[in-house]
Simulated scan of single mutants.
Amino acid sequence: MSNVLVDCTWLNKHLDDKDLVLLDAFMLNVVGKEPIEYSEFVTIPGALPFDIENDFCNNESSQLHALPTAQQFTANAQKLGINKQSKIVVFDNQGIYSAPRAWWTFKVMGFDNVKVLDGGLPAWIEKGYPTSHAYSQIAGRGDFVANYESNKLTDYQGVLAELNNPKQLVVDARGRARFNAEVAEPRPGVRAGRIPNSVNLPFASLMEGNGFKSKQALLQLFSDIGSENSDRLVFSCGSGITACILILAAHEIGLSNTILYDGSWAEWGSNKALPLEA
């Protein structure tokens, strides 16, 4: 079985499993890809809403899309009925977009029994499986408690301190035009360019249709950027969402020395005191 992914056939067989919690990690604001739009609300039967932009985002932070605090995550996970023994499957309505962010947030909070539905809702619909037009009812309050693992994250100071360390590789998930400063950033006040010494691996290059490419193809993509020569793989993007797609792919092929730069380019590009390449 995959390290981090399940497919639609597996999920359809296990929808009624005891302890399975199915989470729809939707995002209303999609950046970096053409959004898939639906004429009406639709989700997978039994799913609960995992709101990355509100409930599971620290909106008191100056940083865009900041990860929630451990206390915030614990409270909202418990509201969803998540228990210590829960088996989490996460998906999103774009195929593979924000579900990896939810997956990595669980990992940061010390919870490992979480996987992502490859291809997400579009793949589920394509397979002809039943859908629902409403979220499921929450059974009751859960007993999950976060155990925050700070080693899975870094901030701009951590990236800057290791900027000239050949064993740190900063991998940027944005599209090539943004990475090469050929287009303006979509967010006001953010400079165009990239973190010095970083490499580009656009998240779209990992996709085949709505899901991930084969393991062999992913291995080649990561080999092409020199990931095997790095002790510290730091992943960045626009605001910390699509970087998690790369982190998930890295774990799928057996790389575990992964760190999320949560502030990503929205933070780095906004700070004129930080160096950039263009």
Rank of each mutant, 00 (worst) to 15 (best):
K115Q: 13
V30Y: 01
F212G: 00
G175M: 10
N93I: 00
E182D: 12
D51L: 10
L255V: 10
S136G: 13
F179G: 06
S239P: 06
C8I: 09
S227R: 09
L153R: 15
L206D: 03
L22D: 02
L221R: 10
L160Y: 12
S239E: 10
L67H: 15
P35S: 05
G269V: 03
N59G: 11
E40T: 12
A70G: 09
V31Y: 10
L23D: 03
Q137W: 05
K213W: 02
V170T: 13
A278P: 09
M109E: 11
P100H: 02
R232H: 14
F203K: 00
A243I: 01
I195L: 04
D16Q: 14
G193C: 03
T74G: 04
E182V: 07
L218D: 11
S86R: 03
L15T: 07
V30M: 00
Q137I: 14
H251I: 03
D143G: 08
G158N: 04
N29A: 15
I225E: 06
V6L: 10
P275V: 07
C8W: 00
Q157S: 10
F179I: 11
S230W: 07
A161L: 12
Q63F: 12
S236M: 09
A184F: 07
L248H: 02
A173G: 02
L260I: 04
K84N: 11
V31W: 13
G142C: 12
P275C: 06
L117K: 00
T105W: 06
F203D: 00
N113H: 14
F144N: 03
Y148W: 13
T43F: 03
V89I: 13
L218Y: 10
V145M: 04
Q78T: 04
L22P: 05
L260E: 04
Y148K: 15
A192L: 07
